[in-house]
């Protein structure tokens, strides 16, 4: 028979209310939330690739990246809206702009970024459509001269919203009471940025003629290295709070992500002209980026569900503060 709550606690000195969680776990769903994190990151980094490709004259890579940025932002928005408890009220996200709410900042960023990438993508596909069709949809010179100009300007502007898209989601996770997320707030943005860059590079590699895909391959490799480095630093710096990243389902996903991302990333620059190796590398990076996002959500849930991760670090902090209090000389000796 369970006699006291002490019998249920896994470690000496740590107490809880019948082993129940102290904080509520994140209620975000699979695959919505991880899929949005992946697509938003992909879109953000792809828009930077698209703008740089345009400036350096890599038009094929630029067009492919514009499409990736648009598809990522729009598909991501769908996942984000369906994630809401009241999807019909999604416009309430734009009732106000609050810098204390990463979700508010993110909603505005996504709104701007989604619009910009849509215009940039429209300008990229218009030349591929038959001329009579274009002139039927767009009156006069709009399709011929105005749209390409607006499209380029939008692509340039989306290179500003893009990096915010790729990193604000790290703040979104870190700005919670979930110990595994909050304590990782220094490394998470770099992990997200690296993963986004690798994802965009992978899509660029897979969708661009190999002769023009060298920058995409380099992006994939740099992103993979950045994500891996951030992940290693994060896991080594976090003590008990980092445990959910190493154990259970989240641990498996994070390990799979490490192998796939780094393997795919290192393969990217040497895949060079081999079609099969390019495909292998791009798919491995994409799978790795998805594993990262699912792993992060799972680690957050584990971290919130076990009261140990909330109580033990807080108890240590409280004890340390108690011990550093200077004793009152007027007080009688104990």
């Amino acid at each position: 028979m369970a006699r006291r709550q002490d019998e249920m606690v896994p470690e000496a000195g740590f107490r809880s209310y019948y082993g129940q969680p102290v904080i509520k776990p994140p209620i975000w769903h699979e695959p919505h939330m991880p899929a949005y994190l992946y697509l938003g990151g992909l879109s953000g980094a792809a828009s930077v690739l698209a703008a740089t490709a345009h400036l350096s004259g890599h038009e094929r890579l630029g067009a492919a990246s514009r499409m990736a940025a648009f598809v990522g932002a729009s598909a991501g928005s769908v996942f984000l809206v369906t994630e809401l408890g009241r999807p019909e009220r999604f416009l309430n996200m734009l009732r106000l702009l609050k810098f204390t709410s990463p979700m508010s900042v993110g909603s505005w960023t996504l709104a701007a970024h989604g619009g910009l990438t849509a215009i940039a993508a429209a300008a990229a596909v218009t030349p591929l459509l038959p001329a009579p069709m274009v002139s039927r949809i767009l009156p006069g010179c709009l399709g011929g001269r105005v749209l390409p100009f607006i499209g380029d300007a939008s692509a340039m502007a989306s290179a500003v919203t893009g990096p915010i898209m790729a990193t604000y989601t790290a703040v979104l996770l870190a700005d919670t009471a979930v110990p595994a997320w909050h304590e990782a707030y220094r490394e998470l943005p770099f992990l997200f940025a690296g993963s986004a860059l690798a994802s965009a590079g992978a899509v660029g590699m897979l969708s661009t003629p190999r002769a023009e895909a060298a920058p995409a391959r380099a992006s994939a490799a740099l992103g993979a290295v950045m994500e891996t480095a951030a992940g290693i630093v994060m896991e080594s710096r976090l003590g008990l709070e980092g445990e959910p990243y190493r154990r259970g389902k989240a641990g498996l996903l994070m390990k799979a992500s490490r192998v796939l991302t780094l393997g795919g990333g290192l393969l990217a620059p040497i895949a060079g002209r081999s079609r099969a190796l390019t495909a292998l590398s791009g798919l491995a990076i994409t799978a790795g980026a998805l594993c990262t996002r699912f792993g992060l959500l799972e680690a957050g849930r584990t971290s919130a569900a076990d009261p140990r991760y909330t109580v033990v670090p807080q108890r240590e902090r409280a004890e340390a503060r108690r011990l550093t209090v200077v004793p009152d000389p007027a007080a009688p000796p104990p």
């Binding site: 904080i23 408890g85 709410s101």
Partner: peptide
């Protein structure tokens, strides 16, 4: 609108 951010 039920975004759920307040929960965690």
């Amino acid at each position: 609108n039920g975004c759920g951010y307040c929960v965690p």
